[in-house]
């Protein structure tokens, strides 16, 4: 199958500053969910913002690569054409549903905003109602203000607004991180259902490997602005090949195992002080001299000099 969203050697950098995303490539297939995992600060959100063409600070910009949506390179498009794709072709759901909803607007107004942004102004109440129904919210929710909704309901409103115009791609940036475990399951179930019903390609960003296991077909592991390993989910869980992936998996609590979860020492290096060579080498238990000097290329789904070791 061909990819709806094809990210090719994407670079994102702060103007006159550090590189935040350093040449990553991802393909999202229609009807499938691609997981993107990695520790905090590895550049997952920046990748998502690059696809949308929006960055939280004006100094951050795409400095190289291509982002193709159904074959068209988005980076060559003028700003207004980019805007018209947002919401219509690419939907986005964010991490913290409370801060991403305007406190002074009702839930319904948020959903209506998606329609209005694309010139649709008729039959608004019934459109809003239909969008709410898809995320299992009652029609009465339309008149509620964000502070009158629970965390899970807020996230459903954001999802309803993101899916209102039937986009081809949905980017979900840690959609359940800020929610209770019990609420998480419901949100993920809505995402799964909508993705398969509409042939939606989903890029699901998360820290949670459990979420990946349940929702994704393929998964990419990101570390310090680069992809270190990419594989089919079951294979990655069965036989992780990059030491970082192995560490990530080992740090998850496994109920069938007595040993305490493994805590990886250290943290993601800051963007302005990236190590040379393989960026994981200062934390890697298998490090050799080559790792310190030369970055390993992505070969056969893994970027590691010691992958066969």
């Amino acid at each position: 199958m061909t990819a709806v969203l094809d990210i090719d050697a994407l670079h994102v950098a702060v103007a006159g500053g550090p590189t935040l995303v350093d040449g990553i490539s991802l393909k999202v297939t229609a009807g499938q969910t691609l997981g993107l995992v990695g520790e905090s600060g590895s550049g997952k959100s920046m990748t998502a913002y690059a696809v949308l063409g929006l960055f939280p600070a004006p100094a951050i910009r795409v400095t190289g690569g291509a982002i193709r949506l159904a074959g068209t390179d988005l980076l060559g498009l003028p700003a207004d054409a980019r805007r018209r794709l947002r919401g219509r072709q690419i939907g986005m759901v964010f991490q913290d549903p409370s801060s991403f909803l305007d406190p002074l607007l009702t839930a319904g107004r948020h959903i209506a905003e998606a329609f209005r942004a694309h010139g649709i102004t008729t039959n608004m109440p019934s459109r809003v109602q239909a969008a709410l129904a898809r995320v299992d919210l009652p029609a009465s929710a339309a008149a509620r203000f964000p502070h009158e909704l629970s965390g899970g309901q807020r996230q459903r409103v954001l999802i309803a607004a993101a899916l209102a115009l039937d986009p081809a791609v949905l980017i979900a940036d840690e959609p359940t991180t800020a929610l209770d475990v019990t609420v998480q399951a419901g949100i993920l179930e809505v995402l799964r259902r909508e993705a398969s019903a509409r042939g939606l390609g989903v890029l699901l960003i998360t820290h949670d490997l459990g979420v990946v296991a349940e929702n994704c077909a393929d998964v990419a592991v990101m570390y310090a602005g680069r992809i270190v390993e990419q594989a089919e989910v079951r294979r990655l869980f069965r036989a992780p090949r990059h030491p970082y992936t192995q560490g990530l998996l080992a740090s998850v609590l496994d109920p069938g195992r007595d040993a305490p979860p493994f805590a990886m020492p250290g943290g993601v290096p800051p963007a302005h002080a990236m190590p040379t060579g393989c960026r994981f080498h200062p934390r890697c238990p298998l490090v050799v001299a080559q790792c310190r000097t030369t970055a390993p290329p992505m070969r056969d789904g893994v970027a590691c000099w010691r992958a066969e070791a």
């Binding site: 929006l54 794709l85 919401g87 305007d102 406190p103 607007l105 905003e113 942004a117 607004a161």
Partner: peptide, 26 residues
């Protein structure tokens, strides 16, 4: 700078609409 403005832009809202619907109101 608020998150909800970023979210509005992500829905495709134009800068004028962002200014009128979100900034002015808030």
């Amino acid at each position: 700078r608020a998150d909800y403005v970023l979210a509005a832009r992500a829905r495709g809202a134009s800068e004028t609409r962002v200014l009128l619907d979100h900034v002015l109101r808030n």
